[in-house]
Amino acid sequence: MSNDTNRNFWEKLLMIDRRWIYLTIGIVVFVPLLFRIGMPVYVTTEVQNVYDYIDALPEGAVVMIPCEYDPATMAELRPMAYALFRHCFSKNLKILSTSLQIEGVTLVKDDLAMIAAEYGKEYGKDYVFLGYKPYPSVVILNMGENFRKPFPKDYYGNNLDSLPMMKGVINYSSCACIVNINATSGADYWINYANGRYKAPLALGVTAVMATDYYTFLASGQIFGLIGGLKGASEYEKLINHTGPAARAMDVQSIAHTVIVIFIVIGNVAYFASKRKMRNF
């Protein structure tokens, strides 16, 4: 008690109960969800590159979009998948998808089917979902030889050769490009094997914290584009002229980031002010 009364304002600020911080973050996340501000989104080159590449593809080309996200990371990566699926279907491109992360198979399957239904696309003719197989590195390597090796049947149990879309689609060389949406270090396998070994044109969609790791592959040309986190997804939504969940979440993210920066500034001011007091004492 006596210790508490001896503390000055800055020291008390440093010792603030963390629940106040949690409450503030809770409010700044929740309120912008109710009242949309509509912050402007600028498009970065790395996202523009993905859009341009897909946009330039001829009708009927096969785009492979393997999605490795799960419920933990779906808030960031699902809007990205929605935007990519919408772009491909609106251009009458065919989508070949897998999910090499076990927790995400049901999510990806449902998401792909939902967007396909929006555009009146037919399973087997316009899109195919291969599903899951363990050991992503080995599966990626085997798909480079022949999709039928790791996936003789698709997720629904159909023989790949019985699906009209899969006629003539042998391996990565049959796909115009691969856009891997990934929340795991499995993205490295796609770079090392799909691009490195089989020379497949590859772009990545990853969570914001992962994005910094992949700028080096963007600079080296191993990936032709990079969609980073919810911001990247909102950029893609802007490019396809579709306001989706990512654009709506940009208000939340902007305000939450600003508040965290304010916390950092306050924390540092309080730290130096209390340090000065100790020195004077």
Binding site: M39, P40, K231, H257
Partner: peptide, 11 residues
């Protein structure tokens, strides 16, 4: 990076 990678950074 925190501010520059969200729309508020532009503003």
């Amino acid at each position: 990076v925190m501010l520059g990678r969200v729309p508020i950074g532009e503003i």
